[in-house]
Amino acid sequence: MEVEVRYFATFRKNGVKKEVIPFEKSISVKELLTKVDIQEEDVAILLVNGIKVDSETILKDKDVVSLFPPVGGG
């Protein structure tokens, strides 16, 4: 399976906006965050396919994960 990870704001390291990551088996969002080296507590908005989820969520093939640090505006 593979998952698309989209990085926003200060999560964009070395200009990487998104990447497709392949996995042997299903993993949770928490495990994904470890793999991409982002601390869970630094994630303010966590979306899978545009819907807010918690880090225990198990990812499916072709899911899109969007990660945002604390941001806001008006």
Partner: peptide
Amino acid sequence: ENGVTGQGLPTYGTAVLVNILNELG
């Protein structure tokens, strides 16, 4: 200390919302 006022807004301004709202549809 607040993530939004201490980090998010200074770094990207209100414009950072474009991608958030787009990701949410």
